[in-house]
Write a protein that binds this DNA or RNA. Structure first.
Lengths: 207, 207
DNA sequence: GTCTATAGTAGGATAGAC
DNA sequence: GTCTATCCTACTATAGAC
């Protein structure tokens, strides 16, 4: 990785954060990177390709920085704590914000869709591993596929970050409600043998 | 509402759907609307103001079209069915897609944030009403605030629609997992008196 | 209210000097 | 690899004719 390539990638991330997908351009990126505008095309060919590289880089780094924390998670409560920490750090950093902007752009730009899907897959794979471990033997795990659940969790998280951008206090109440729901989930997961048997019996009656 | 204003609003919605927030302009909107480009500024002053009006209009219409269906909802299962129908219709229509694009744009454009928040509030208010009714007496309702839950549901839905744009089969598995989770929620909600008492006892021990 | 024309700015992309 | 200069396109917004 040459220094200029790195500058451009960092500049692209800064430009997305500052101007959103609607405002990024070779010029705004080059300004943020402190390099000449023509270098975007020399090093990456098109703006889209630079955005793809930047998104991949930022997501890979972000996911890696949570890998050890996620590896230690053995309960829903702990997973939630990691999610809360991620959310807190995102307020300053904004790697999920990058993903959200890419996702918005990818809806109508076929060149952005594959790299965005790939970046999201980094998150879902990590979350799926944790969910598979945490939900083993739980009523939740027996019913819902960890793979689908991981995708739903990632998508919901992105949606909440977007929502926070237009209604910060509202987003706080939304997160609090989800935390309460997770508490309930842990309680259900932790029911005594009698109640648990009743639950299992009910579940068996569902196709 | 003059015919031209209406054409412009419809054109704005079509343009957002086709080009995303990154690609809308007075020109793309005017082309979609079949009117002269200068009329955007005559009728709405700025592109942002037209987008705001279009978003409000589309969301209000969409919410209104689900009001009667939502009024008949008395269980989580039924609420889920409405959600599924909305999701199916969105594949063709795309009013949530509009909201998602506005949300992405609003992150960095302060002029888009208030109208976007207002449009989202139309959905959350409706969902909150239903949740409040459905969750009365349920362990879920006693723990989590319907207001926060409604916001979380709306945000998650937007996130899932965005996710679907880059990974359609993945989004399907995500929706399926959430449906399974809702089934489990209904089962918990419907537990026999013994198990229910055990659940309540546990919940009381949590602050 | 709607049109044409246009000013002024910003954007993608390339050629060619260094 | 990096820079300047430049072409062409597209954008917002307005002025003025109809």
């Amino acid at each position: 990785m040459t220094p200029t390539r790195q500058k451009l990638i960092d500049g692209a991330l800064a430009a997305i954060r500052e101007h959103g997908i609607a405002g990024v351009s070779a010029r705004t990126i080059a300004t943020a990177a402190g390099v000449n505008q023509a270098l975007v095309f020399y090093h990456f060919g098109t703006v889209d390709d630079l955005l793809a590289a930047a998104c991949e880089s930022a997501t890979a780094a972000s996911v890696a920085s949570y890998r050890s924390a996620l590896a230690g998670v053995t309960s829903l409560r702990e997973l939630l704590a990691v999610g809360r920490e991620l959310h807190e750090r995102e307020k300053a950093g904004g790697n999920v914000a990058i993903l959200a902007q890419m996702l918005a752009g990818a809806q109508t730009d076929p060149r952005l869709a594959p790299p965005t899907a790939a970046a999201l897959a980094l998150w879902t794979a990590e979350i799926e591993t944790v969910l598979r471990r945490v939900l083993t033997g739980s009523p939740f795990g027996t019913l819902a596929e960890p793979a689908g659940l991981a995708k739903a969790v990632s998508a919901a998280f992105v949606g909440l970050e977007l929502y926070e951008g237009v209604d910060e206090p509202g987003a706080t109440t939304a997160f609090e409600a989800l935390e309460q729901l997770a508490v309930l989930a842990e309680v259900v997961d932790d029911l005594g043998p009698v109640a648990r048997r009743a639950l299992r019996a009910r579940l068996r009656r569902i196709p």
